[in-house]
Design a protein around this nucleic acid. Structure first.
Lengths: 343, 343
DNA sequence: ATGAAAGCGCTAACAC
DNA sequence: GTGTTAGCGCTTTCAT
């Protein structure tokens, strides 16, 4: 049988659709008596509002989109995990899309968004886009995650990559290491996060009065295990291998660690390793890897907050720049002592 | 300014809304000449169809929901990664929700779905539900993932857990191990996947004419690293520790591995380990862990296919049971030889 | 506090 | 092949 509509309820309860709507949406102005009548009718008919109709009438979908490059990258999975409950609490559904870092797909999403897609706003973590690809006048509320700096029309949430990388590198130097490599650099214009991290790496060297051996800065197309492994192999093939490595993501560090151990090196004795992102894998690797831990919950909740604020604002809001916190987490891959029994 | 509507386009092109709709939706029956007029008008006005209105008129949202217990569990992240492109290819958006394995939330989703939620069907991976919690008469197209067997009204996609577990255990026994532990058992009624794996574990013992030492079957509330680590600790505290462990997920195996190494054991010499799921982490751990590899791509694409078939069918389809393939992947955690240099 | 009625923007049955 | 028009089911302005 046809599903009951609001109209059916109104008929049965002997009131107008208007009143039923008021009851359903919890508007104060309903007599206790009418409310009861209506609620009875609702129960009797098993009525539930049709979201699609409501969306059209409201002109909003009650959905936000979260777009990341890769879902199976733990960092993004963990981020998403934090975004979803926050959105749901506020009554929003979350649409998820992944771009594989494909610039075409990313640009496409940005352009086609608006009425063409059923979401009221978007949290976007771009990878293959240059700064100028981001819209000057986004047709929809937009919060950008990651490295980019806000261009003033959308919000941006991220940590201070330069400072964090400087800290990580300084930690390695502070251990007495003098040949510190960096794995993960990426070229302009798309690899901004990577470039910021390289900048921090250089600063730390400058702070310590140490020169940077440019041949120790290794570029990788992506921040994954395979690339980390490949880069580490090349570093270890050299006559003068590094005694420490700053990896631009934990995944890179995990790949690098795998290779180092496979070659019979001791970590951290022969070579110290530090990663970036603080994903769970890094806590359970052998040895566990030191890392830069961004405050993911803050990033996620801030992003949702900002986005909903934009969605619910009548006039365009200026784009703001939000810095979430981060901290250095020292684990065994940069510690001198022997592995403690943790469990 | 107000966004252009289909009506505006019709006015400008001097045709009826009907014709514009035909053009937009690519219906054949349009003269080349009118099509051009219409397309011109569309371009001029920058018209894009309003999805919300279209949804209401069509009575469908063009969205499917994918519900998993945890997004940051690599197995589910990898699955999702495979589902999304498949759905997108067919013109569907993917709504994602996670339940944290909370039975209330899971039941709720099942009950409130239908018109109350804007999706046309659901791919659902339950965790905290017993068989009888699944609807006898789902109000919407439903495909269930994981351990459960179809009750005849919805489809079910999964691998043969008993066979896979039997293979994994047999592999360990084939190595000459005689004290094979199992980590991950869970009680009735919710832990069906776990129970099937335990059954496979027993079968393998029976096949080999070996008795099962019940004290070597360790239950865990979840399939994560922490639980794996905890269980392994208890096993190693015993006077008669096992010489091999079948872990019900790779995450459990990774946690177990961590503890074993931290205690100075050699893997696989002192204790062999095998996991389940074939997540990427397991390929890069030190040593890499052997595992049961389910055909995730097949699971994902089959699930999407079945679901869309249900969505587009007028009459209710009988629930079918689909078995995806799996295979044993032998890596270093169950191999005798020394670690090869992989990169 | 409640009713009447006009949309929201699209689709599609029904004409011609 | 194209126009006319009546919904889809809800929200909400305007009355009362």
């Amino acid at each position: 049988m046809r599903d009951a509509t609001l109209r059916d309820v109104a008929l049965l309860a002997g009131v107008s659709p208007r009143t039923v709507s008021n009851v359903v949406n919890g508007y104060a102005k309903v007599t206790e008596r009418t409310r009861q009548k209506v609620e009875l009718a609702i129960a009797e008919l098993g009525y539930r509002p049709n979201v699609l109709a409501r969306n059209l009438a409201n002109g909003r979908s009650g959905q936000i989109a979260v777009v990341v490059p890769y879902l199976d990258t733990p960092y993004f999975a963990e981020l998403l995990q934090a975004v979803i409950p926050g959105a749901r609490e506020r009554g929003y559904n979350v649409l998820v899309d992944q771009t594989d870092g494909d610039p075409r797909h990313e640009r496409d999403l940005l352009r086609r968004s608006g009425r063409a897609f059923p979401f009221d706003g978007m949290i976007f973590s771009p990878l293959g886009l240059a700064q100028e690809d981001l819209p000057d006048d986004p047709s929809l509320p937009l919060v950008v995650l990651g490295e980019r700096v806000s261009n003033g029309v959308f919000d941006h949430v991220g940590i201070d990559d330069v400072a964090a990388s400087r800290t990580a590198t300084a930690h390695l130097i502070g251990l007495g290491r003098r040949r510190v490599a960096a794995i993960g650099d990426q070229p302009y214009p798309t690899g901004e996060a990577a470039q910021l991290r390289t900048r921090g790496y250089r600063r730390a060297h400058a702070d310590a009065g140490l020169p940077v051996d440019e041949s120790l800065v290794i570029g990788t197309p992506r921040f994954n295990r395979a690339d980390g492994a490949g880069a580490m192999s090349r570093l270890l093939d050299r006559d003068d291998p590094p005694d420490a490595v700053f990896c631009y993501s934990d995944l890179v560090a995990l790949g690098a660690l795998h290779v180092a151990l496979a070659r019979g090196l001791r970590v951290p004795e022969d070579i110290a390793l530090i990663g970036y992102d603080d994903i769970e894998d890094g806590r359970y690797s052998n040895p566990p890897i030191s890392t830069i831990s961004p405050d993911k919950v803050a990033i996620a909740t801030t992003a949702v907050d900002r986005l909903l604020e934009r969605i619910n604002s009548d006039r365009p809001l200026p784009g703001v720049e939000v810095r979430a916190g981060h901290r250095l987490v020292v684990r065994h891959s940069t510690a001198g002592r022997a592995a403690p029994v943790t469990n």
